[in-house]
Design a protein around this nucleic acid. Structure first.
Lengths: 187, 187
DNA sequence: TAGCCTAGAGAACGTACGTTCTCAGTGCCA
DNA sequence: TGGCACTGAGAACGTACGTTCTCTAGGCTA
């Protein structure tokens, strides 16, 4: 077996799992469907991910990283702190417009499994806490009040669920406008 | 069989289903567990609800009514339109503090089944649209701008998911403060 | 009392799950 | 070349699902 093939197959499996879990939910996707989508034998699959729950956790960790990258890219855009914070909602808008958008995988997975899987609930909680903490960091740097961070975070969460359920990306614009009002009132 | 017993048993089943689905999610609750919780024979259960999906839809309709009642009670509180709108977030705070709070059953169910069950997705979409329309009604009466309604709705949605995931009721207060700022800027 | 309708309890059905095991095939080193 | 370690494909396992069916018991009408 070529060196690095394990990593490659891991990535294939994780990408397939991400795709299927996001589209259909976790429990609706069997390990067999997953092995078909990933094009990997069941044996190999279980070698790499000893349990489905572990695989779900790994998918969430991967999504956490991707989300972080998107947020950092938005916050790294030039301009005032106000502009940089609002860029987060522009990023959301672009995401909501993607064809396969179906809400926040963390919120969805928490709703489905959070009541019974403490490990997954913990990962979701951590993910949301880190996002809010990152907002707080920038707001503090800009001299804003600590209370602004949770308010902006709540707008982002609400926009994600609203856009998913409504099936439109309008919520991003509404959240952006609300965020602008809140920032202007606080900074 | 006494007259009205069907209604009574229906109510028992719906209450049990609501309890179990909310706590554990839909797919994690089998019809057998449900029949045990409701204290009803499987035959009777399927007489009243020919399929699990139908039962889920009925549970959501019941929750929609209960939510409507809570919202109307909040909006019926005295005072200015500002006070009445903010009373919604006070209602949320009391809800989040309940022991068994585990988020919004509509958001949770949409995340779990929305991708594969269009009927359920439709009920959830309708529920959220009606809430936002009700806010818009009051805002229009008060002479506020139409854009305020989706903003306040997004705050409410975000507060529900944030409170569920964080496991605290803080989000209600943050959403309330943000709503107050938005209302003051708009009215 | 005899016969019938309905009820509850739960066995049974077909399917599909997560996970493990079997087995024939393949490349590798002695 | 022969034996070994490992592979992919998928059968098999035990369980649990949603749904239907069977069976026994009991109350109603005649």
């Amino acid at each position: 077996m070529p060196v690095g093939a394990d990593e490659e197959i891991r990535e294939q499996v994780l990408a397939a799992a991400d795709r299927l879990f996001y589209r259909r939910g976790v429990q609706a996707v069997g390990m067999d469907a997953l092995r078909t989508e990933a094009g990997v034998s069941l044996k190999r699959l279980y070698q790499l991910f000893p349990s489905k729950e572990g695989l779900v956790e790994e998918v969430l960790r991967r999504r956490h990283q991707a989300w972080d990258d998107l947020v950092e890219a938005a916050l790294a855009s030039g301009g005032t702190p106000r502009d940089r914070l609002l860029a987060v909602y522009d990023m959301l808008s672009r995401w909501f417009d993607e064809d396969d958008f179906r809400g926040c995988v963390f919120i969805n997975t928490f709703g489905e499994l959070g009541g019974a899987a403490p490990g997954i609930a913990g990962i979701v909680r951590e993910h949301k806490a880190q996002f809010q903490a990152r907002l707080a960091e920038l707001i503090t740097e800009a001299g804003g009040p600590p209370a602004l961070a949770p308010q902006l975070a709540i707008l982002a969460e609400g926009a994600q669920t609203t856009a998913a359920i409504a099936g439109t990306s309008d919520a991003a614009g509404h959240a952006r406008a609300a965020a602008a009002t809140l920032i202007d009132a606080a900074l």
